[in-house]
Design a protein around this nucleic acid. Structure first.
Lengths: 230, 230
DNA sequence: TCAACATTCAATAACTCTATTGAATGATGA
DNA sequence: TCATCATTCAATAGAGTTATTGAATGTTGA
């Protein structure tokens, strides 16, 4: 990464710095890393594993984002844990998505054919979910892997990772509606969970967005490992 | 610019598209072009002139942003006018600035030494300005070039471009406070205008941000050339 | 002190982006 | 139809970015 060189013109200098921050999010792998980091802090190894990158490559991308102030790192024993620097980073990603959805035809095409095809119904809003939970009407289902669930989840949510869903259906109360969520707006897991559940006769729908947006909205978050109700 | 190649994995495909949008803002010249476009729509030639770029170079950067859906172009006679695609583009730039200000030490340094040094007082908020204007307490001064003023300005504002300020001081009512504004958060012109006015005994301060933010806040905007009260 | 391990660093080849040049396109008005 | 003008295109050299490799760093627990 190039350091924007200092210049006699303060505006040019600032634009160079802003461009450096923008460059730091301008790579598909770095966006994938940021999506993971939005779930909670993670070591390089775990991030590399989840994003299908080599460790050295993941490390380099992470350092690039650290230099740009998008993520922060902290050593803890042998591990170095990275995390998002700021809630503003999530807001930046949201803006980026919004523009791409509105103005890039290709994005609209993928979203329609891949996501809406799976769920023609409106997702449940966060406010709505809270109401229905209080009324005891729904089961909240977190379909992310157990370790992501442990880093923070919707209070009272049940954790059944998507890969386990078919063989753990009996854990769900079939008299209640199921509302599933996962990592965020473009995470397919909750779409697939809803499809699988409906096929098996459950009333199921998706929560809008995912955990990072829930957290960013200032709603309460519960941490800790799932209780396996064998 | 590379087209993100289509992929069997929809998430990878979307990340590639988002990265392409991010890349489109990730260059200092393109940020300068966007700042200009935030004032209103402009031909390639004018944009090239204002940003000190060659015409061909400006054209290429603009096309890159058009492909990413950040700007739109429209032919009008011999000229092609570019404009921001969306208010969301301004919001994206604002987020980018916010992160850079908070998390990049170098930005903080430049802002402090270059901008705050010129004006230790708080800027006037938009809401505040409206109140004071209604009470007849202030003169609103737009220090941008006349053509930018013509594309949209704060209703009732007087236009004296910074370069003309010293020789047109008599046009200002020295019994009132002057509130100056220009292109946006990192435009130095309003800072310099305030400094020049104070040196000459005026009570002067700056409006927070500039015209694009005023417009984005949904406040009313007046168009048309300035009346020269020679 | 040592081996084990997570992460980073350095070097490098393949690839991509930028600015510049001069030619091509397409609209205008004579 | 032609010359003029704004913009874009095509080619290209120079600069920057990425993934990969294998070595280096720094922490842990024996």
């Amino acid at each position: 990464m190039t350091q924007p060189k200092s210049s006699p013109n303060p505006k040019a200098e600032l634009f160079a710095q802003f461009a450096a921050v923008a460059k730091a999010i301008a790579h598909p792998h770095r966006l994938a890393l940021l999506e993971q980091l939005a779930q909670g802090e993670r070591s390089v190894e775990v991030l590399a594993d989840r994003t299908q990158l080599s460790i050295a490559n993941a490390s380099q991308h992470l350092q690039q984002m650290r230099r740009a102030g998008l993520v922060a790192a902290q050593r803890s024993g042998k591990f170095i844990h990275y995390r998002l620097a700021d809630d503003a980073v999530l807001a930046l990603l949201t803006q980026l998505r919004r523009i791409a959805e509105r103005n890039v035809a290709e994005v609209d095409r993928v979203v329609r054919s891949y996501f809406h095809a799976r769920d023609s119904l409106e997702p449940v809003s966060r406010a709505d979910l809270m109401k229905r939970v209080r009324a005891g009407l729904v089961v909240v289902l977190d379909v992310r892997p157990a370790d992501e669930f442990a880093l923070g989840h919707v209070p009272g949510a049940l954790n059944i990772p998507l890969s386990d869903l078919k063989r753990r259906l009996r854990e769900l109360d079939s008299s209640k509606e199921v509302v599933a969520y996962c990592r965020g707006p473009y995470c397919v897991m909750s779409y697939e969970a809803v499809a699988a559940l409906r096929k098996r006769g459950f009333r199921a729908s998706r929560l809008e967005d995912g955990m990072p947006e829930w957290r960013a909205a200032g709603l309460s978050v519960e941490t800790g490992a799932p209780e396996r109700s064998g």
